[in-house]
Every structure is written in C-alpha cells, then in structure tokens.
Amino acid sequence: MTAAAPTLDVSGTQPIPFWRLVLVEFRKSYDTRAGFWLLFTIGLLISLLQVVFLISFLVQDFVYATFTDFTGNVWLVSLVLVPMLPILLVTTEWSQRSAVVTFAIEPKRVRVILAKLAVAVLLALAAVVLMFVVAAVCTAFADLVKPDFTEWRVETEFLFLGAPLTVLTTTVFGFAVACLLLNTPAAIVLFLLSWYASVGVFAAIAALIPAFADLLPWITLQVNVLLLADGLPSGGEEWGNLLVSLVLWIGLPIGVGLWRILNAEVK
C-alpha cells in the first residue's frame, strides 16, 4: 500500500476540442433510425407543405401567392417540429443509457450538453434555411406559371430575424424541457402541453380570477414567441414580458435540468 504510485503522463494529451464534441453529437443526431427519420420527416414536411400550397395555388383561379404565403404555415409547424431534435438528442442518452459512455469519454458533462445545444441550434437554422430555399423555389415556379398572380414581396425582417429567432427559441425551449425530464415521451408531452395548452389554461384561469389576466403577457411563452416573428419588442414592457417568460419557461428548466445532469449519478 505504500508503493509510490506512478503518475499518469498527460502532458502530451490535449483536451477534446469543443468542435469535435459537436461533430460527435451531430453524428449521433442521424446515426440511429429514430434520429434519421426525424430529420428526414422534418425536411420532408417543410418541403411538402409548401409544395401542397403551390399545387393548390396553381389549380385555383384568381388567387394571389406571395413568398411569405409559402413560408407562413410551414413556419408554424416548424416551431413544434424542430424542437423534437434536441429532445431526442438529450433524452436518448438516458433512455438508452449511453450517457455512461458519453460522460466517461468527456467527464466535463456541461461540455457535452453544450455540444448538444450547439447541434440543435445548427440544425434549427438549417431547417429555417431549407424552409426559405423551398419557398424561393416554389415562388419562382409560381412566377413562371402564373406571373400575374405571383408576388415576391419578401419580408426581410421575418426572413432574417423573425423566423430564425422564433424557431431557435422553441428549439431551446425543447432542449430545456429535455434537460429537465431526461425522458423522451415525457419531454415531448410536456413540450406540446406547455406550448399549446398553457395558453388555453391560462385564459381559463384569467376568466375566473380577473387579476390573473394582468399576469398573462408575462407568463405566456407562446404569445411572446409569436410576437417575435414581427420583430424585436418595441417598448420596455414588451421586452420585460418576453424576458420574464423566457426565464420562466427556458431559463428555469435549463437551470434545474443542468444541475441534475451535472450532479446526478449516471446509470
């Protein structure tokens, strides 16, 4: 027991660079069936919904189509579809127990989680880019066939700010829910419930307790996110509403979830 233990010579070893962790997590996002088909489905829906709109435009008479018309519906769908990516990316490590290996390779767990967030953000941006590329192609086709009824009318604020910001926000929201629950079905259910149902539930409560109605703008994430589509908040109170709802729905679950991930035993 007294033998002097030889030390590990780690002087020649570099820590794993962050970009390599991102690369690994990116690969994990598509190298399983579930991951691949989720990516495929998101891509397909983003394209297909616009093509359906294009066809209905082409067969109908006296209907106008603008570039924004193509993206509008798809954007709303993307808001709930794209967040499934971080949910899957985070929770499968626990449901498949591969976190044991992941965290043995990189014991600084927060780096792994940040790499997952980075991949989610990149994929969300890719989804937005795809949405606009398909919209451009569809508009061009519509312009070719029915030039008199087609308008380009690109809303740059939505294109460069509203759409990316909103999709990113819900993606990070999905990531937060996933970190909090570390369970795939539970995270999906809580995400959808808090996105769709919370508005109705809050409205119902406000009907019963009038004072609660004043709180609504501060605590309803969906409304605040959708407002972002038209650009950044204009006044101090709007900014306050947005930030408070972000902290409540995203900051809090990420904080609790990260604390749990960093301190819990990995089984």
Binding site: A5, T7, V10, T13, P15, A104, K108
Partner: peptide, 12 residues
Amino acid sequence: GGLDYSAIPNPG
C-alpha cells in the same frame, strides 16, 4: 496516476 478522472484530458 495521481489525478482525478475528471482532471485527465481526453481520458479515453
């Protein structure tokens, strides 16, 4: 080797 596991760079 005298180090905490988490202090080993690229521990694999």
